[in-house]
């Protein structure tokens, strides 16, 4: 007789993600996995490796590098890619600026977050990618909650939330015209806690900035930002040293740190369970500008 074991929520979420990754690889001509060095894209990469084991990935990883990343994240990225022996494409925002595709913002509020969109779309066109895997989750933000697993983008990279393709029974329509692409979100149904629980279960390594460390920071809009060469401070913004960690990893200019002494995955999990601030609320300066900020950026081709 066959003995079955109980499945956990993580087992089901893992299976769903792998199903989506395999569907995309099978149906889309030229996929790439958008790798940011953040925990969501690390989990996504791990799932992709599992989906095709023992063979390697049938697509490359692509990092849109703002040039304002934390060094720890770039180190992690390069080590991980070497360990996995996979192909990494780096699309650089600095290159886009140097080639006059975009103009760098200046001043204390300058961020390259918006500029990334051009760099990403240029890279998609240059490499003729037809699908980009992303680690976005529906629990992150209200407009994300409406995003499909396979999210169609027109030739301008735009998302039309009113005209999304229905996805009954996880039957995904991956048809494209020339110049179009799809964004594919295998971990759509995961929550931030699921991601941490999975990192713990699978014993995944993360960039060190996810864990408590001492860092020179300053306060802006009630958030702690890192003192970083890419961030210009107002005269009144004094720096001080705090024990902090990051809940998300992005551009140093707009990723907030939180005060924390959680130094291990288990401690981070415990803290996240108890937290009463959402991940985005804690860390993303760029989303606070307007109620519809994320939706507007997504329409225009943002991640």
């Amino acid at each position: 007789m066959t003995v079955l074991t109980e499945l956990s929520t993580l087992d089901v979420l893992e299976a769903e993600a792998i199903h989506v990754i395999r569907e995309c690889a099978a149906e889309c001509e030229r996929p790439a996995l958008l790798f940011s060095g953040g925990k969501d894209s690390i989990v996504l990469t791990h799932l992709a490796v599992k989906a095709f084991a023992p063979a390697g990935l049938p697509f490359p990883l692509m990092h849109v590098d703002t040039g304002h990343n934390f060094d720890e994240v770039i180190d992690y990225r390069d080590r991980m890619v070497a360990d996995l022996d996979e192909r990494l494409i780096v699309a650089s925002v600095q290159d886009s600026i140097d080639r006059g595709r975009v103009e760098d913002e200046t001043g204390p509020r300058a961020s390259r977050n918006r500029l990334q969109t051009t760099t990403l779309l240029d890279a998609i066109a240059e490499h003729r990618f037809t699908a980009c895997f992303g680690g976005a989750r529906r629990d992150e933000e209200r407009s994300r909650a409406k995003e499909r697993f396979f999210s169609h983008r027109d030739a301008f990279g735009q998302w039309d939330p009113r005209n999304q393709r229905p996805e009954p029974w996880s039957l995904y329509n991956t048809r494209l015209r020339a110049g179009e692409h799809v964004r594919v979100f295998p971990i759509s149904n995961w929550t931030e806690l699921d991601v941490w629980a999975y990192i713990e279960r699978e014993g995944l390594a993360l960039p060190s900035i996810y864990f408590a460390h001492e860092r020179e920071v300053f306060e802006r809009d009630g958030m702690l930002l890192a003192a970083h060469p890419a961030v210009e401070r107002y005269p009144h913004e004094e720096t001080f040293v705090e024990t902090v960690r990051f809940r998300t990893v992005g551009d140093a200019t707009c990723t907030g740190a939180i005060r924390s002494t959680a130094a291990t995955v288990a401690e981070v999990l415990a803290e996240t369970r108890a937290s009463d601030v959402s991940e985005r609320g804690a860390s993303r300066a760029d989303d606070r500008t307007s109620e519809a900020a994320m939706e507007d950026r997504k329409r225009n081709g943002y991640f």
């Binding site: 629990d139 209200r142 407009s143 939330p161 519809a292 939706e295």
Partner: peptide, 28 residues
């Protein structure tokens, strides 16, 4: 909270499927 998209906020109706996760005493 759930009416996520701009068009919906403007019209005050839900026009696309939104997905939410929560736990009911241990079941997702």
């Amino acid at each position: 909270l759930t009416d996520g998209l701009r068009a919906e906020r403007e019209q005050g109706i839900t026009i696309d499927v939104a997905y939410r996760s929560f736990d009911a005493n241990g079941r997702r």
